[in-house]
Each structure stands twice: as C-alpha cells, then as structure tokens.
Nucleic acid binder design. Structure first.
Length: 461
RNA sequence: UCCCCUGUAGCUCAGUCGGUAGAGCAAGUGGCUGUUAACCACUGGGUCGCAAGUUCGAGUCUUGCCGGGGGAGCCA
C-alpha cells in the first residue's frame, strides 16, 4: 500500500477509507484502553490524530512511542467525535521506524524560543513554525517562476563565481585555491597568477550585469539564485548568503519596471494566500496578527508611487523628529522609509528618481542631470524589498559614470560592449527572497526564514 | 563596525540589601481520563557562560574575554 500524505487526507478523504500514513509523532496521550498519537508528515501544519486501541497487536510498543519518533500507521479513517478534527485514523498496525530518546531529544511538546531553535537548525524544520515557513517559502518560489514563465521571461543562470564586483554592492567572499598559510605575493599585492582562475575571484554579490548581457539578447529574462555578501552586517534583515530574484527587460523603461515589480509582488502574495491558507492562518494567529489582511490588501491594490524629491518634501513637512537629517541629496534612512510606508501611506510605496550621487553607476541619468531612474519598493516593517532601475544605455554617459565611481573600464569591457553594439533601453530589479518570506510570514528575524542561515561568525549546519 | 540589553536545571525564567539555588514546562514513576499545549501526585536534575579581582563570604559588585538578542550603518 502506498502512503497517503496527511494534507491529502485532510483535503479530500472520506470516512471508511483505508490509508497508510508515515510521519513523525508530535505527542502521545494515553486514555483508558487506547492511546492518541498526533502525526505530522510535513505536508501540512495540521496533524493527523491516530487512535491506537489496547487490543491492537504491538500495543506495548505503541506505549513506548514518544515525541519525535517516526512511524508508519495503517488503518481506517473514521469521523472523529472530538471537536478539533473532522477525521481520525484508527490504527490496525503501527510500525516504528526510528525512536527518539525523550531524555535527549531537544524538541519538546511546548513552545521554544526562536533563539534556541536556531541552535538546533537541523531539527527545527520539524516544528510547526518552521514547517510553515518552509512551505510558504516553497509556494513563493513556485509563484515566482510561474509569474515570469507565464509572461515569457527566460530563466537564465548567471555565474556564482565571478571576477566582477557588481556596483560594489558589498564585500565579496574570496574564491581561491591558493594555500592560505603561504600566499604568493608581488611586492604588496597577492599574486593571483598561480590561482585556479589566474585572477582574483569571489562569490557573486549580484547577477545583474550578466543578466543585462542576456536580456539584451533574449529580451526578457530572470535569475533566481544565491547571492553572497561578506559584509559585517548584524541585523534581523541581513544574511551573508541569501537568494535573489533579478528580472531584466529589454526595450523597457522605469515605468515598465515599476509595473512589473507591482504585478509581480501582487501575484506571489495572492498565490501564497491561496495555496498556503492553513500556514498563513497559523502566522496570522501566532506570529503576526493581521498578516493575512495586510497581504490581501496589497494583492488587491495599486502601490503608491512618489519621487525621491516628493518623499523628502513629505518628510520635511511631517513634523516628526528624526534621528538622521532629512535633506535633498542624502539617502533615506530606515526611520524615514518606515515613516513613509508605515505611518504616512500605510502600504507599499515605490520611490523613484533618486539623486545620482547615492545610487549605482549603471542607473540611467534623467534629463535634469541630477537624478537617476532608480526605484525602491518599500514595504511596512521590512523597508526595501526591491531595488531596481532603468539602466544607462548610452555608452558615453555610462563610461563617465563608471569612471566617477572609480571603476576601471577595462575590467568591464564586456558590459560596455552591450552599449557599443545594438544598445537598447532596458530595466530590471532585484528582490530579496528572504525579505519577501519575512514580509509574508511576519517572522521577525531573517535567520528564521532560511533553513540554514549564514551570518557573521555563524555557519553551522 | 557602533550603541544598548542579556547569559542561572533539557526549555522559559525568578533570585530582594552580598550569606551558599527556586518556579513553570519538559523528563522519570504512579494514578485518572475520547484526549487534543490533557489533567493530578511524587521523584531525579545545577562548574549560576569563562577567567580574574574586591570581600570573612559572590548567582548578586568590578574588569576582561566569549556567546545570544535588539537597534543603527551597509544593503536585498
């Protein structure tokens, strides 16, 4: 007999059906003449209640089952007299695959702090919260591919190991086969001639530049892959290894980019609400009150769009006292973004046309000469969830801006070639995947929305 | 990297004025029971993060180090 997933039983099974269920025991409670077992197989946040009667073969073994044991249960589904579940499984046979010594098994049938669970990241997927996080994460990943595939975007794979330091987006992790205890040197520099690639390389901080190369051939593309930043960032919103979604569209301007970002977020949020209803109900009840309402609101409404100049004006007239100064030319601080998106507009906001000095070299210069066609999508609680722009497609302007940024044109000859040969207007953005999972679930710390987080000083598991 | 908070039983925490260690949950045993964070009783469980200092005496005060958390910067 093939095993049935608990999610399918809860969704569709009728009383009287014979099933085989396999999973992990969450709790066991004894009653007179029988035992209740709560089984979870990861397919749903809801457990299946199993009734094991005293009369069944091997009941002495059943009574040794504790939280964390893995079991197979064969039996018939019946209507449950209890109020918390419609169906329950009356066991004819129970097999224990693996025991979990209750003296040493770290997960108890009680609430644990997220800090503690991080220390047992190998076991935390077996908890309600992390099971739900990982299913939501999966639903978002699926919706992301769906969204782009449905629109004819080509999923491309940009390199993980790279020699280019995109936009100086962050410190790179070095990739080398040189012996660290004996690094070859030329005067005061490391000599990479004998290294694996014969040059200095690192883990990518963004696939954008390569994405542009592919978009200026295939039209519309997207990447979805891991990204690495060796920044010493210790916050609830930063990881050293995180996943990023980066679409890039040829023949597109900043407005197309904003439209895409907005449709994209609305699509993945709606898909999540639809496909992870139980998990979302859990987050709404236990993690972040109002999570569902917030998401539904976003999925159903247009985002507010304002220029950086308007944003500065709004902040200056707010009457709020900010820790950091508000002045045209200075970047928006977390507190400023939070005021705009949480207090003033109370929904996602797209801010465009930032001063050129505070944005990356590849962003298209506006005709005013002082702002660029950048856009940041800000959401309540998280802040920046998407950063994007129309790209500078004019060779001379791009070259000037690269030089101003201190980048060597020789290193980026291949990037500049896209502007030398058949240059087109194009635009794209980057979405922080973990921040999106954070926003959707309401989880406070980004370390709790990725199975095995990498942060400064921590790479366990 | 900076600022603030914190580290006591397996987990979550309390511990007053410096006087030698407590609760709830978990675990073990027994009881009760269509239970559902089950319930009731009893039992076991501690290098108070590490090191030094002050003191007759330090979980408690001081310093350093290490770990964890929150905020900021950098960004996604």
């Amino acid at each position: 007999m093939k095993r049935t997933r608990i999610v399918d039983i809860l969704r569709a099974a009728a009383p009287g059906t014979e099933v085989l269920v396999k999973g992990w025991v969450r709790t066991r409670r004894d009653a007179k003449g029988f035992s209740f077992l709560e089984i979870n197989d990861g397919s749903s946040i809801t457990n299946l209640q199993v009734i094991a009667a005293e009369a069944m073969p091997g009941y002495d073994i059943v009574q040794r089952i504790t939280t964390g044991c893995s079991v197979a249960v064969a039996g018939a589904l019946t209507e449950s007299p209890g109020t918390r579940q419609a169906l329950e499984l009356h066991a004819a046979e129970i097999t224990v695959y693996g025991w979990a010594d209750p003296e040493s098994y770290p997960l108890q049938k009680k609430r644990h702090s997220f800090e503690f669970l991080r220390e047992i990241a190998h076991l935390r997927p077996r908890t309600n919260t992390f099971g739900a996080v990982l299913r939501v994460r999966n639903a978002l990943a699926r919706a992301i591919h769906e969204f782009f595939q449905d629109r004819g975007f080509v999923y491309v794979h940009t390199p993980i190991i790279t020699a280019s330091d995109c936009e100086g987006a962050g410190e790179m992790f070095a990739v080398t086969t040189l012996k660290l205890e004996d690094i070859p040197r030329t005067k005061d520099c490391v000599d990479y001639a004998g290294d694996f690639f014969g040059r200095k390389t690192g883990l990518t901080v963004s696939g954008q530049l390569e994405g542009e190369l592919l978009a200026t051939a295939l039209g519309d593309i997207y990447t979805f892959g891991p990204t690495f930043r060796a920044e010493n960032s210790n916050t609830s919103r930063h990881l050293a290894e995180f996943w990023m979604v980066e679409p890039e569209m040829a023949f597109a301007d900043i407005t197309d980019d904003m439209d895409l970002a907005e449709d994209f977020l609305r699509h993945i949020f709606a898909a999540c609400l639809e496909r992870c209803a139980d998990d979302m109900a859990f987050f709404d009840e236990r993690v972040q009150r109002g999570a569902i309402e917030t998401l539904r609101g976003i999925a159903d409404s247009r985002f507010e769009r304002i220029t950086y100049t308007d944003a500065i004006d709004m902040l200056e007239k707010s009457g709020e006292s900010f820790e950091y100064p508000v002045k045209w030319g200075l970047d928006l601080q977390s507190e400023h973004e939070r005021y705009i998106t949480e207090k003033k507009i109370k929904k996602p906001v797209i801010v465009i046309d930032y001063p050129r000095e505070i944005k990356a070299f590849y962003m298209k210069l506006n005709d005013d000469g002082r702002t660029v066609r950048a856009m940041d999508v800000l959401v309540p609680r998280i802040g920046e969830i998407i950063g994007g722009s129309e790209r500078e497609d004019r060779y001379d302007v791009l070259l000037d801006r690269m030089r101003a940024a201190g980048l060597s044109a020789e290193d980026y000859w291949w990037y500049l070639d896209t502007r030398r040969f058949g240059s087109v207007p194009h635009a794209g953005f980057g979405l922080g995947f973990e921040r999106t999972v954070q926003f959707v679930t309401g989880m406070q710390n980004i370390r709790d929305v990725i199975p095995f987080p990498r942060t400064p000083g921590s790479a366990a598991f």
